[in-house]
Amino acid sequence: MKVTPKKTCLIVDDSKMIRRVAARILRDLKIEPSEAGDGREAINMCRSSMPDAILLDWNMPVMDGLEFLKTLRKEPGGSEPIVVFCTAERDVMKIAEALDAGADEYVMKPFDSDIIESKFFEAGFV
């Protein structure tokens, strides 16, 4: 029997606790999570293996979420992953800026599993 590989999602957040919570939610959705603590680490991971989706924080040291997204979209294969911003930023202008930069969906913290599932559904991922 052919086994369909699990979809993968890279969680990019400087908070280890947020990464753990998000990873647990993604596993419940049958999505295989991986983790990066900032944008620079995330770009290196994407160059090594492009994930199917990325759950992306905005404010991070080294390289923030917006800079990461702009860089990602220029990478070979970088237009493929579905990117869901997951941030405490709730300003409408910030949300519009994220969408203009190539985000597919947007989660405002705090979140729960229902919201994550709903947003991945909106983005056409589950």
């Binding site: 709730r90 300003d91 409408v92 949300i95 519009a96 969408l99 969906e105 947007y106 989660v107 405002m108 979140f111 729960d112 229902d114 919201i115 709903s118 947003k119 909106e122």
Partner: peptide, 20 residues
């Protein structure tokens, strides 16, 4: 609430039809 608008409402509709 911010929880309610994140259940089923695409983000583009949120910023087009709602004010914070």
């Amino acid at each position: 609430t911010h929880f309610e608008v994140q259940r089923g409402l695409p983000i583009r509709y949120l910023i087009e039809y709602f004010d914070r």
